[in-house]
C-alpha cells in the first residue's frame, strides 16, 4: 500500500524526520508511538502533503493503480483523491459551511476522481445517515457548521465520520484518541474497526497505548527523534505502557 524509505523532512528549516523507513500492506493496522516531539504528527502530515512540511530526502511510494508510485508531485487534494485520508489531531473550523455541504462536496470530488457519478444532496443525506448511526451521532450534526462549536469528542467523531464516508485506502489517524473520554473512545474505535477491510490499511499515530486496547494493531513502531527506533507486534505497546518510553531511549 505504502512504502517509505529514508524519509527526511523539515519544518521551517528544522529537520524533524531523519530517515524513516516504513512499509504498510493492505489489510494491516500499524501504530506509530513515541514521546512528544518525536515526529509522529509530522510523518502523517508529510504523507498527506501539508505544504508547510518540506520533504528533503528519501521517498514515499503509494499504490496508485497497480503499482507503487512516488507521490512527491501530487497536491494534497490529489493524494486525497488517490485514497489517502488524514484524521486531524485538531480538526479545523470552517464558519458558515454546514457539515452536510462540506461532506457532500468532499464526497463528490472523491467520486469524480474515481470515475463515479456525483450524487445529489438528498440521496447523500440518507447515505450519511447510515454512517452517523455507526458513530452514534445525531442527524442535526449535519446542519451545523464544520467543527464550529464542537466538543473535542464531536470533532474526533466527525473525522471518523468523514473517513467512513470517503472510504479511503490508507487512513492516517493523528492522535485520534486525544481529548476523548472512554465512551467516545470506544465509539470512535468501533467506527475504525468497522471500516477495516482487506483492501485498506490504517496508521494510528498515538502517544498512549489506551487506544490500542480497542483497535488492535498488527505492528507497533516507536518513533524517537525522527527515526523509528523499534518495531514489534502489539505486545510492544503493552511493554511501553508498563515501562515508559525511557526504557527504549536508554537502550539506544
Amino acid at each position: 500500500m505504502i512504502e517509505i524509505e529514508n524519509l527526511h523532512a523539515n519544518v521551517e528549516n528544522n529537520e524533524i524526520l531523519k530517515g524513516i523507513n516504513l512499509k504498510v500492506n493492505a489489510g494491516e493496522v500499524h501504530a506509530i508511538m513515541g514521546p512528544n516531539g518525536s515526529g509522529k504528527s509530522t510523518l502523517a502530515k508529510v504523507i498527506a502533503g501539508h505544504p508547510a512540511y518540506e520533504k528533503t530526502q528519501g521517498s514515499i511510494k503509494f499504490q496508485l493503480s497497480s503499482k507503487l508510485e512516488d507521490i512527491d508531485e501530487l497536491e494534497p487534494d490529489e493524494r486525497a483523491k488517490a485514497g489517502i485520508f488524514l484524521g486531524f489531531q485538531y480538526p479545523i473550523e470552517i464558519p458558515g459551511v454546514t457539515n452536510l455541504t462540506f461532506l457532500h462536496e468532499s464526497f463528490n470530488q472523491i467520486c469524480e476522481a474515481q470515475g463515479l457519478d456525483p450524487i445529489p444532496e438528498e440521496d447523500f443525506r440518507s447515505f450519511v445517515k447510515s454512517k452517523l448511526e455507526l458513530l452514534e451521532m445525531n442527524e442535526s450534526f449535519l446542519d451545523r457548521p464544520v467543527n464550529e462549536g464542537f466538543s473535542g469528542g464531536e470533532k474526533k467523531k466527525n473525522e471518523i465520520l468523514q473517513m467512513a464516508i470517503l472510504n479511503p485506502r490508507l487512513s492516517l489517524l493523528d492522535e485520534t484518541d486525544s481529548g476523548l473520554d472512554i465512551d467516545a473512545l470506544k465509539t470512535v474505535a468501533k467506527g475504525v474497526n468497522a471500516l477495516k477491510s482487506k483492501r485498506n490499511a490504517t496508521i494510528l499515530v498515538t502517544h498512549y497505548q489506551r487506544l490500542l486496547n480497542y483497535i488492535e494493531p498488527d505492528y507497533v513502531h516507536v518513533l524517537y527523534k525522527g527515526r523509528i527506533v523499534k518495531s514489534g507486534d502489539k505486545s510492544l505497546a503493552l511493554e511501553l505502557e508498563n515501562k515508559g518510553y525511557d526504557w527504549i531511549i536508554n537502550e539506544l
Partner: peptide
C-alpha cells in the same frame, strides 16, 4: 489544507 485533504 484541511479541505484539500478532503479532496477539494
Amino acid at each position: 489544507f484541511y479541505l484539500q485533504q478532503r479532496g477539494l
